[in-house]
């Protein structure tokens, strides 16, 4: 009986000691998970869904790398540079990306930038005017963009050519056309574009991945799984000690 009581006390002491150790070890994780969880639940209020993270070491964790083009489009001293994700006009990142840009044309007071599905219009200061898509255009898909018939000209793969001065009305063009082609970027333009074309991730996404451990890949998830198991052990050992204490007091 004395031996049993001694053994029980010893087990209780060991459990209590490990319960405290696990609690200390889990403390930092609890603070992190609770803090980041609260922030995620209020991400819209905190603006985390609208802000972006571009720190190189975080971007590297995602295996992302900026594609810096060495060619771009020049029209009336305006430079258009882009990659598959973002587009820069005159050193300003555009809200409308034009992956697979086909060209840039300056005509009248407007700049026309095209890819296969979109003709984006900008004013002379580079401010966004309007995006035109197939419903606004006389052709289904743009194959080339150029200058002719005194205006901007777009053509489809079958070489049906239409011109417009304002992007509102289009007419067939039979005259000579100078098609927009890419040119090698001067170093200064490329450097400025490179700075803007760095990959970015929404802050909310990064925080969510840090919260779940996914940001550190497979091992990050394992670590967070281990923390989860740690929490379970703390809960079980705490519960066991609580019940043991109360059962002993109820049955002296």
């Amino acid at each position: 009986m004395n031996t049993d009581s001694h053994a029980r006390r010893r087990i209780g002491a060991i459990l209590h000691r490990w319960h405290r150790r696990l609690g200390v070890a889990a403390g930092l994780f609890v603070l992190w998970l609770a803090g980041s969880g609260i922030a995620l639940n209020h991400s819209a209020d905190l603006g985390l869904d609208r802000s972006a993270v571009s720190a190189p070491w975080i971007i590297r964790l995602y295996g992302l790398r900026a594609t810096i083009p060495d060619r771009g489009y020049l029209a009336a001293r305006h430079w258009l540079v882009g990659n598959e994700v973002q587009t820069v006009l005159d050193g300003r990142l555009l809200a409308v990306a034009l992956p697979g840009t086909l060209g840039l044309i300056a005509s009248g007071d407007l700049l026309f930038a095209a890819n296969a599905s979109t003709l984006a219009l900008f004013d002379a200061q580079g401010r966004f005017v309007e995006s035109l898509h197939d419903a606004d255009l006389p052709i289904m898909a743009i194959h080339r963009i150029g200058q002719g018939c005194g205006a901007v000209v777009i053509a489809d793969e079958q070489d049906h050519r239409f011109f417009s001065r304002d992007g509102l009305t289009w007419s067939p063009c039979a005259g000579a056309i100078v098609w927009s082609t890419s040119v090698a970027l001067p170093a200064v333009i490329q450097a400025r574009a490179a700075n803007l074309l760095r990959p970015q991730l929404p802050t909310e996404r990064v925080l969510l991945d840090a919260h779940s451990g996914h940001i550190f890949g497979r091992y990050g998830s394992f670590v967070m799984d281990t923390v989860g198991v740690l929490f379970i052990l703390i809960a079980l050992s705490g519960l066991w000690m609580f019940l043991r204490h109360h059962l002993r007091r109820g049955h002296p």
Binding site: L33, S36, G37, N41, A135, H211, M224
Partner: peptide, 22 residues
Amino acid sequence: MLAALLSCGGAFADTVYQTRDD
């Protein structure tokens, strides 16, 4: 972790319910 469990990682995709012309 709760937030991670509750969040869904759906992919971004345009869902056109009606075209402009229609």
